[in-house]
């Protein structure tokens, strides 16, 4: 007799052969081994390192105390820094003021996209004649002036640059056909003008019947009493595609069928809520429904 704890606690596993190789590879990266002659002095080197870090820590602490104690000194330093900033000449750009103006310039430039296609591709009139469109491209110009005293937010001056005129023939819009709401009788399309080749063109349109509404139960009772023992979806038999996936609450798939025949009896599934995902359809028209179904066995 043994308990779960004993079994699990005493359980040993053999690591795979390359496990140590991987580990030692990682170790080589993270803690590279000292060279052969240095291996013996590794301990002393580590000691020295620790000593050094302790020293460094002490020095840092000392510095902190000095800083805290000398607030006047600190403010003098700040003052000096401010003074340095103010007096810095233009020829020596300080790293504080210059990047600020730079970012403002680039950001403003990005806000003005220029796309010549955008302005010419949409014809405003339905005329079939070629339309001449000339566009002026806004070319953002980088501001070059920069004052020496303080950072200034620079807005780019927009200068128009000439662009070669383009000739664009607008395309008539393509007719869009939607499969919905098509009457079930064939439609004869007759052209208004006589075509020398085809007098009359008959086209049969594929009519898509809306799939009958499915009735999906939200509960079934697989207890063998002959009533509601299976997860039956009414109306599914008229679909030629019927993929059913059922998952439990943790997302684990408990049932799956690529052609569901209303035969899932919930075996191996304890009572509870399950989630189904049903993809059904016919004639290439597909629809997916999701929902929950409860299994009760009372």
């Amino acid at each position: 007799m043994s308990t779960i704890k004993d079994i699990l606690d005493s359980h040993e596993m053999t690591p795979s052969a390359d496990c140590w190789q991987k580990l030692s590879g990682r170790l080589d990266q993270l803690m590279p081994q000292a060279s052969a002659e240095g291996a013996g002095s590794g301990q002393s080197a580590m000691e020295a390192g620790r000593h050094a870090s302790r020293l460094a820590g002490a020095a840092k602490a000392k510095l902190l105390i000095t800083m805290a104690g000398l607030t006047i000194g600190a403010s003098v330093i700040v003052l000096t820094a401010v003074a340095l900033l103010k007096t810095s000449p233009d020829s020596v750009p300080t790293p504080i003021s210059v990047p600020a103006t730079d970012t403002s310039v680039t950001e403003t430039m990005e806000e003005i996209p220029y796309d010549p296609e955008l302005s010419t591709a949409t014809p405003t009139t339905a005329t079939q004649s070629p339309v001449e469109v000339s566009e002026e491209a806004p070319a953002p110009e980088r501001a070059t002036e920069r004052t020496s005293e303080q950072p200034v937010v620079v807005t780019p001056a927009v200068q128009p640059a000439p662009l070669a005129p383009r000739t664009v023939t607008p395309q008539p819009p393509k007719p869009v056909t939607t499969p919905s709401l098509v009457p079930a009788t064939p439609i004869i399309v007759t052209s208004a003008q006589e075509d020398p080749v085809i007098q009359e063109q008959t086209e049969t349109l594929q009519v898509v019947e809306p799939t009958q509404k499915l009735e999906i139960p939200n509960v079934f009772t697989p207890n063998g009493d002959g009533y509601n023992d299976l997860f039956v979806i009414m109306g599914l038999e008229q679909c030629n595609k019927r993929v059913l996936i059922v998952r439990d609450r943790s997302g684990k798939t408990v049932y799956q069928s690529s052609k569901y025949n209303n035969n899932w009896d919930g075996s191996n599934c304890p009572e509870g809520v399950y989630f189904y995902q049903l993809t059904f359809g016919r004639n290439q028209i597909e629809e997916t429904l999701q929902g929950s179904v409860t299994i009760i066995r009372k």
């Binding site: 007799m1 043994s2 779960i4 079994i7 699990l8």
Partner: peptide
């Protein structure tokens, strides 16, 4: 307190 049979393999 469940004691388990030794059949219960880890």
């Amino acid at each position: 307190t469940d004691d388990l049979d030794t059949r219960l393999k880890a």
